[in-house]
């Protein structure tokens, strides 16, 4: 099993205008877009939202194929949602057999739900494809900054997140090694029923956890040696700056959400 091939964080470096936007602007715009998705009630609003998404994808130079690949794991959820919505929405029946009724409203509802989820996932993927994980954690730390006054440990949380991201590849490599080592001793990791396979994971997880704790201990010492003493008095090499483009992007996204909200309010 080539665990190493999994690319986590899913960041495709690039130089497009979308890549170079401030990560905070992208995060805010994404939230606005998702709000708009759930406020929309009308075919035309979804057409508009789809157009916006298509334009942003085109500008970002992210291959549409990559977005489609991101949708693959959720196909099951999509089908499930569509079927549930189709059968359980009350209204004017179109087809009915035994205890099942397919209603016109149900089909519409199912369609909208699927469109929403597809667009929601596409836009979150677009964010992670065009923004490095580190920039994202920085953006979160900065956006959640005001929560520090409420004693939310914002700096600590973002530090934990970036360290977790940093150690994912290291731990994956380690898991790979432990798997090979246990296989070499005759462990059978790939066959048997669910319970047997779960049991086979124990000799994998125990060494992995022990080594992760040891790593954590050493990392803590190394961080102390480099004068880490919490977020107080800390500066950053790369400071985030809003440029006019970032502000415009956020304004555009919020205007989109507001106008679609207004349209939705009038039942459109």
């Amino acid at each position: 099993m080539a665990l190493r091939d999994i690319t986590l964080g899913q960041f495709f470096p690039g130089t497009s205008p979308i890549h170079s936007l401030d990560p905070r602007a992208k995060l805010v715009a994404m939230v606005c877009y998702i709000v708009a998705l759930f406020l929309g009630q009308w075919f035309v609003t979804y057409a508009i939202l789809l157009l916006v998404l298509a334009v942003v994808v085109a500008v970002s130079t992210v291959k549409p194929k990559a977005l489609v690949r991101g949708l693959k794991p959720v196909v099951f959820i999509l089908v499930f949602t569509a079927v549930l919505n189709m059968f359980y929405t009350p209204g004017e029946p179109l087809v009915s057999f035994w205890i099942f009724n397919i209603t016109k409203e149900g089909i519409l509802h199912a369609f909208f739900m699927v469109v929403r989820i597809v667009m929601l996932i596409s836009c979150t993927f677009l964010l992670t494809y065009t923004t490095s994980p580190l920039a994202l954690t920085d953006a979160l730390e900065s956006l959640m900054g005001p929560l520090k006054k409420l004693r939310v440990p914002v700096h600590e949380l973002s530090m934990m997140m970036s360290i977790a991201l940093r150690f994912i590849p290291t731990l994956i490599e380690e898991t790979d090694k432990i798997m090979s080592a246990q296989r070499a001793r005759g462990a059978d990791l790939d066959s048997g029923g669910l319970i047997q396979r779960a049991k086979a994971l124990i000799p994998l997880l125990v060494p992995l956890f022990i080594s992760a704790f040891r790593r954590a201990d050493e990392l803590a010492t190394a961080m102390e040696c480099r004068c880490y003493h919490g977020g107080e008095g800390r500066t950053r090499m790369k400071q985030l700056h809003y440029r006019p483009g970032d502000v415009l992007f956020m304004l555009g996204a919020s205007a989109l959400a507001v106008s679609i909200g207004v349209l939705g309010h009038f039942g459109l």
Binding site: S132, P133, L134, S162, I163, L165, R166, T170, R214, R215, E218, L219, A222, M223, R226
Partner: peptide
């Protein structure tokens, strides 16, 4: 251990 003293992912 070089892995256990590198903090950031860049």
């Amino acid at each position: 251990n070089p892995d256990n003293q590198i903090v950031a992912s860049v």
